[in-house]
Write a protein that binds this DNA or RNA. Structure first.
Lengths: 204, 204
DNA sequence: TGCATTTACTAAACAGTGTTTATTATATTC
DNA sequence: GAATATAATAAACACTGTTTAGTAAATGCA
């Protein structure tokens, strides 16, 4: 009865094919322009076939959403070696901002768009998000223990840090930073200066 | 030749009718579900008629976007009387957050959605936004002059403050605060605690 | 007042979208 | 080899924003 296993494997391969095509199209032309029909065209199947492997468009983008969290996580974990928790926090923050600025479509899907959240609502917990957020929590916890940052409630501090970096990136990604009326590269510099100031204010 | 003036008045009245209907539908059921056809149904005209008064859907929502800025501005200006610039800044911040939490659809349109920004790109300046942001700048300028907040570049500080409160509100509005796994009213309390901590860190 | 012209409006169509259904072709089981 | 289960699709459904062509009413002018 190895046929069932092969079929299962083929089913997974088809899912991967769809996800790969969808990811590529999404990063090239954004969410709205990545239609089910355009994915179907790309993989040379009919649009209806996609619905044999995914419930709806949101489910496809939920998988891409999960993959994006893995990528961000890998970036953030690079700083595991930094012994000083405050300097590790600084590195994590800079990397988070850099990821957002360089991967605006991924960032949008992860933290701004409503689409993938419809899937998550019905889950026991937001695993991917909890992972990255958990990493922030442990780092901040160390900072507090070693009195490297101003004493305050851990969760309240975590929300403050995350909200700030998310605010920076999302205002940039959704084109609200134009009120500064600066060239794009200068805006990025101001963003990082703002992060430096935030970190300085956080310090004991 | 008063006919031309009457026609102009009637044209403006029709625009107002469309905007009023669109605003009402938008606040009731959100942007995506507010279709041109639903607006047309509501005002009892054909969908094509709307295009005689507005270039496209974005232009309608750009006007609503402008109105929303006027509303926020009125809320913020209530604190003009607070002499202490730091306490004024605190009041402005709390009001900004409160506005976002209580008017998530307006907030979305103003600071998150892409739709109205297509109109703004081609403008000499983002008047409404500049107004509210300008208010933040003058208040922060006073804070810096009176050494009520830590010395730093004015614009860098302004971006920091705005990014933080925007981050708070937008993570809440776009349902990312669920990682806290708290009941909704508790989440709001943590949000305000986070703001208090931010203000404490800002203080000299 | 009567006729020509402009204005206001709309029905219908166009080109898309996500999704479902009925049907066909293929593969597996007995 | 016949019956059954699986995989894929063409076509349709119900939407969307927007455009075009045609109609009815209001206006300008003689």
């Amino acid at each position: 009865m190895a046929i069932k296993e092969r079929k299962e494997r083929e089913k997974q391969e088809m899912r991967n094919l769809i996800i790969e095509s969808a990811t590529q199209l999404f990063l090239k032309q954004g969410y709205d322009k990545t239609s089910i029909r355009s994915i179907a065209d790309d993989i040379e199947y009919s649009p209806a076939t996609i619905y044999l492997y995914f419930k709806d468009k949101d489910e496809i983008f939920y998988v891409i959403h999960e993959n994006a969290f893995d990528i961000l996580d890998k970036h953030l974990r690079r700083h595991d070696g930094i012994a000083d928790p405050f300097e590790r926090l600084r590195a994590i923050g800079r990397t988070y901002i850099k990821f957002g600025l360089e991967n605006p479509d991924y960032y949008d899907l992860m933290f701004i768009m409503r689409a993938p959240m419809e899937q998550i609502k019905n889950e026991e917990k937001w695993k991917a998000g909890e992972c990255a957020f958990g990493y922030l929590l442990t780092t901040l916890s160390e900072c507090l223990d070693q009195k490297r940052i101003r004493p305050a409630d851990l969760h309240v501090t975590a929300i403050m840090v995350w909200s700030f970096v998310h605010g920076l990136v999302s205002l940039y990604v959704r084109e609200r930073m134009c009120i500064l009326m600066l060239p794009d590269d200068t805006t990025r510099e101001v963003l990082y200066s703002s992060f430096d100031l935030f970190m300085a204010n956080l310090k004991t």
